[in-house]
Design a binder for these strands. Structure first.
Lengths: 204, 204
DNA sequence: GATTGTGAATAGATTCACAGCT
DNA sequence: AGCTGTGAATCTATTCACAATC
């Protein structure tokens, strides 16, 4: 299981979330049909997606909720924790530092960095802001793999390169710029302006 | 110009941002080739995308930066301002209320709502938090079109429906749930867990 | 001579429909 | 009898390549 498209991965995340909920409700088995109905998904597509990661269902019966959940978690590498560092302690960075999805579950923010000396030491959520100059040591010391980039647009490319250089292997970029992506790093962008412009389009 | 896919719209946003930068630099003309090189895009794709919104270039010459920019802004309906309301004044909602992309340019946040009585009145950025109960009046009074949903997962569906009911025509959802989408509303999701899981996948 | 706009070719994603298990 | 897994069909997106235009 290795070549999954971004589209497929997103849907697998959605299935995983659904399965977690079903398991909490105590359900043991579910068919693609039922799951699709319940969560407004396509049963056909779900089966195709799941088929890409293995033969996981039982014909005539359906899927075992717990087994499938574990399998999907394994696909995402969620048996172990993933540590993240946030670079840029402005509005967005600070909000993410307090995001409940971190500090619970499979992801954890282990450091929050900023280059404004006057902000260093300030505690946000549980974390004290540290200097961006310490990036390399912090990555090495904590073993963090994921970088979350929340600096202003002008500083994004430079910080991105430093993050990759410091050893981070995946970056989630919130700065509104087209990064020149580096090889060997998985980079995803969340660009609020692009999202808003798409919404605006549908309002004409 | 009416049926543009989400993929195409995202790229048009990217081109628009590039053009704004080029115009600021004082450039008057650019070819698809140059623009692609400069911003790491595909020249072929750019021409195809632009062809969907009109015949905008001059063969043998290229595109006029100012004209193309205006045309793209018109496609997105950015000649006029779009007003937005944020529902949920937690970490994410508050961070977005202070986001520079709002209160400058074509989008503006006109209200920040929460249902926790103890938070009402607190000023975030420039805006006082108001009661979610006032949603309908605020939408009607301000003429806001866009809703930004930043409430906890459990409350998302309910608030989404209220927002649509109050007259909002586009919703940007940050809550980590699969909304049952309503007709007549453009809905986009930003789901941090899904993004993180996709990054985790590439770390196995 | 340069560069667009576009039809044709290719690649990728989704949907259909049914054979194959349980 | 019921539901999965999957090949075949369809639909969508991207890339190629070149005729049309300046």
């Amino acid at each position: 299981v290795d070549n999954l498209s971004s589209l497929t991965l997103n849907r697998l995340s959605v299935y995983l979330r659904a399965l977690r909920q079903l398991q909490e409700e105590g359900l043991r088995r579910i068919s693609s049909q039922e799951l699709a109905q319940r969560f407004l998904l396509s049963a056909d597509q779900m089966r195709k997606d799941l088929a890409q990661v293995g033969e996981l269902g039982i014909r005539g019966v359906g899927y075992d909720v717990a087994t499938l959940r574990l399998k999907l978690e394994a696909v995402f590498g969620l048996e172990r924790q993933h540590l993240a560092i946030i670079v840029g302690a402005g509005n967005v960075g600070s909000a993410l530092a307090r995001f409940p999805g971190f500090n619970s579950g499979n992801f954890q923010v282990v450091a929050l960095l900023d280059n404004d000396p006057s902000r260093i030491g300030t505690v946000v959520g549980q974390l004290p802001i540290r200097s961006s100059l310490e990036l390399r040591e912090i990555v090495a010391g904590t073993g963090a793999e994921i970088g979350i980039l929340t600096v202003p647009a002008e500083a994004a490319q430079e910080n991105y390169e430093k993050m990759v250089d410091a050893g981070l292997r995946a970056v989630l970029n919130f700065a509104p710029v087209q990064l020149r992506e580096l090889r060997g790093v998985r980079t995803k962008n969340v660009d609020l302006m692009i999202l808003l412009e798409e919404l605006a389009f549908s309002l004409r």
